[in-house]
């Protein structure tokens, strides 16, 4: 497998959300707008890349039996870092994402990549893998956030005040910004993603 395939697999072929169904909790919870989805996706990407990097460096120094606890400590450290950094520099996003920032630590995607990929591969491949998977995750969250925001509130926010569009005035289909809409929208998107995947591969 060359590095391009390694990188691009996260977008469609092995997309964490649409195909592997990993990390669904933040996916459903924070995607009330495209911006929130993007922010969560990028925060997860950072944790994924950094933990993949560290795990692939220390993989030979860790006794097999404490492998998982060690990985968890590594991941939790980066999650806490992200938490403090977002609170300091993007406080609005920090408030929006709330409890789901510390919960990146139990995102099965992150531990899954450490265990399944980074602990078996070299440093460079691990970084590429983390970056591809993370960006694939971010893409899925942004798409879901965009769908829900457009249908539910009639606007599209990629960056507040900079890339913000109002598509129509008044209330949209409110259900899509509420909890049930998250499930419905994701259900249809998974179906679509399956079609796209079958076309491409």
């Amino acid at each position: 497998m060359n590095q391009w395939q390694n990188f691009s697999k996260g977008f469609i072929k092995d997309n964490p959300v649409f195909v592997l169904f990993l990390g669904l909790c933040p996916t459903l919870a924070v995607t009330t707008s495209a911006y929130n989805g993007l922010g969560m996706g990028l925060a997860t990407t950072f944790v994924l890349v950094m933990s993949n990097l560290v795990v692939s460096i220390i993989k030979n120094l860790i006794p097999g039996k404490v492998r998982i606890p060690t990985f968890i400590v590594v991941i939790a450290s980066f999650v806490t870092m992200v938490e403090m950094l977002t609170e300091a520099f993007v406080p609005d996003l920090y408030e929006q994402l709330g409890i789901f920032i510390p919960l990146i630590v139990v995102n099965c995607l992150v531990l899954g990549r450490s265990e399944a990929f980074a602990s078996k591969n070299n440093i460079f491949s691990s970084i590429i893998d983390g970056l591809g998977m993370g960006l694939g995750f971010a893409m899925a969250l942004t798409v879901l956030g965009a769908v829900r925001e457009v249908l539910g509130s009639g606007s599209l926010t990629l960056i507040p005040d900079v890339l913000e569009f109002t598509l129509y005035q008044g209330d949209g289909m409110l259900v899509f910004v509420l909890a049930p809409g998250a499930f419905l929208a994701l259900g249809y998107l998974i179906m679509l993603a399956d079609k796209v995947k079958k076309k491409m591969y």
Partner: peptide
């Protein structure tokens, strides 16, 4: 096309 996971999500949406 809805079989499996997609329909599960739709059902979860209705339950929610």
């Amino acid at each position: 096309p809805m079989q499996g996971v997609p329909i599960a999500f739709i059902v979860a949406g209705l339950l929610s």
